[in-house]
Design a protein around this nucleic acid. Structure first.
Lengths: 338, 338
DNA sequence: TCCACCTCCCAAAACGTTTCGGATCATTTG
DNA sequence: CAAATGATCCGAAACGTTTTGGGAGGTGGA
């Protein structure tokens, strides 16, 4: 608990000099700097970041706000992997991460902006948030720098990182078309999610380019839930035997569809081809392993943090967004139709 | 950015009174309190936690130190789920979480204790750390309150939470014995991990109680890795056909053993029964689904945070540890031997 | 000799809170 | 009526830094 004062006293100089010596300023004699550094080490000094934050008005902290940090996120490791990326990128440039838990109860009594301002975070990364979440407006109104994951918003202090969801969906559908499928359904997430909209767009675009009809009732609502996707797919496939392939907006929903297929005694991939989206860990372990569109989740987090810190250090980067590629991972749930 | 001073000026009182009013002290007139609260709201005031921390010498922050916050943790969602529990428990009592990334490079230039002291965290939760990690000595020497996950250390400022690993292993082995197995191998993690030692102990204890021989070469080293477990099991099972069951110290290693069995054309569970440990998400999705010992990872995190915060608030709780039960989850990788 | 200009150092203010030790005035008690 | 008590309020110090605006003392040039 040695402070800068203790060092000053021990080294026989003023606190000013200690501060300037330790922070590498030029106007302190090399000999006294050495001396100060030695006594600092001897006293086992470590600077008090809180005091520093107070006077500098900078906390070197970025807030991490994930809408649902809970067990349900355990299946798709999305949140976790993104977090790893954020963590690495942030620590590279000496920023620490503070976790804002945001259950709706708390949200009532303390607004998001308040949380940020209290803790004096310099910027925020928001993840897993829906497009109509009130938080979004709040963060934009406050002028705290922010980058979103998978919400395409850009502004003075706002950026985002995402993957090319439209093209990803196109790849998935194109793959099915190339295999010979003509009746391709889609199980989508909820329409408030930006990624859902994009993936639907890609689905439709690719069908149009192949001059296949786009049928509205071929698009099912799976709500990003395994169970909901299962029941939706079950009901649909039962009465639509002409459909030979399903594109799912998430791997988790693809698992649900696989389950539905099993209940209907449809063999995968002989009777039904399935393509997912995300490449969650599980998808390699299903039987058969799931063909899917892979996103580099770690990289998304890494880019998000890099984007934010570059915004903070005032580097006027012209682009406030990063769109990553994703790729088709061929596994065993797709085959030509019978 | 309104400060307490601004409120004082606007409300025509002193900063002292504002502070005391806002913090619910008794010696301020109810009328002036109301007035102060109103002007605070009008000025959109939110307290500066940094300044408060400085003067109070309390940050209401707890550090979260996980040894490997990286992609490799994505498979077993252990880290993530524990984190969710910690987060919930911490936010219940108004603590925020700060994430300490700790790759070994950084560790060189800035010790763990320094990180904690700089950020003035009140306590730490350490997770995923090996028993011989130098960090452990460091944290015990510093007197920062700390609770470990799955490392049984107790002291003045140190506690831990874990599950009953010995008994868990016993349950697993007993289940196999009850099915009629007599030659039961074990794939263990690395021996520096406390949980490995415990699970091995349970394995041996249960064999002894059933008066079955404990053979040293029946214990394989899987290093907590799927691939290592696979090759170890492959070599072992190839030459030990009398073995009809394997108990694995982690689900991930159990997956490796399943893979090895497949390569040896052993059917699961007819030719080989397998029991895992952890109940990771994946284990429900393998084919066949994995019988395992379930740990409530979320609860572990929750208890860890509760333990720490109770230590911090000075509640002299006599027990500085929490040992949770775990349970046998019967799925489809176990059956009587042929 | 005087002035300008380095080099090295320092005192004091500032950041936004909390809290200690009174101060003021009105009311009750002896 | 004097003294004690109680209810409200406030000034100032403190927390550990950074930073501003100099101040010595020395050197070199005119």
């Amino acid at each position: 608990m040695a402070t800068i004062k203790d060092i000053a006293k021990a080294a026989g100089v003023s606190v000013t000099t200690v501060s300037r010596a330790l922070n590498g300023y030029g106007d302190v004699n090399e000999k006294t700097r050495k001396h100060i550094e030695e006594t600092a080490k001897k006293l086992n000094y470590s600077p008090n970041a809180v005091a520093r934050s107070l006077v500098m008005n900078k906390s070197r902290t970025i807030g991490l706000l994930v809408s649902e940090l809970n067990r349900s996120g355990a299946k798709d490791m999305f949140t976790y992997e993104v977090m790893c990326g954020i963590n690495d990128a942030a620590s590279d440039v000496g920023y620490d991460l503070i976790l804002f838990s945001t259950n709706t109860v708390k949200q009532k009594q303390k607004s998001y902006t308040q949380l940020c301002r209290e803790r004096q975070v310099e910027g925020v990364i928001m993840q897993g948030i829906k497009k109509d979440d009130p938080y979004i407006k709040e963060v934009i109104d406050s002028n705290i720098p922010c980058v979103f994951v998978d919400v395409e918003l850009e502004g003075d202090n706002v950026g985002f990182v995402t993957t090319d969801n439209v093209f990803g969906a196109q790849m998935a559908v194109k793959h099915l078309i190339n295999l010979g499928h003509r009746h391709i359904a889609m199980v989508n997430g909820h329409d408030k999610a930006e990624v859902s909209q994009k993936r639907l767009k890609g689905y439709m675009k690719e069908l149009q380019e192949a001059e296949l009809p786009v049928k509205e009732d071929y698009v099912l609502n799976g709500g990003f839930l395994e169970s909901k996707a299962e029941s939706a797919a079950y009901n649909f496939l039962k009465t639509n035997r002409q459909v030979t392939a399903v594109f799912c907006a998430s791997d988790l929903m693809a698992l649900g569809v696989m389950r539905a297929a099993r209940r209907l005694e449809l063999n995968i991939p002989e009777d039904l081809s399935i393509v997912g989206f995300d490449d969650i860990v599980l998808s390699q372990y299903t039987s058969p392993p799931l063909t899917t569109i892979g996103q580099d989740k770690y990289q998304m987090g890494y880019e998000a943090a890099k984007l934010l810190t570059s915004m903070l250090t005032g580097k006027k980067s012209p682009h406030k967004k990063a769109v990553l590629d994703n790729q088709l991972l061929l596994r065993e749930t797709t085959a030509p139709p019978k």
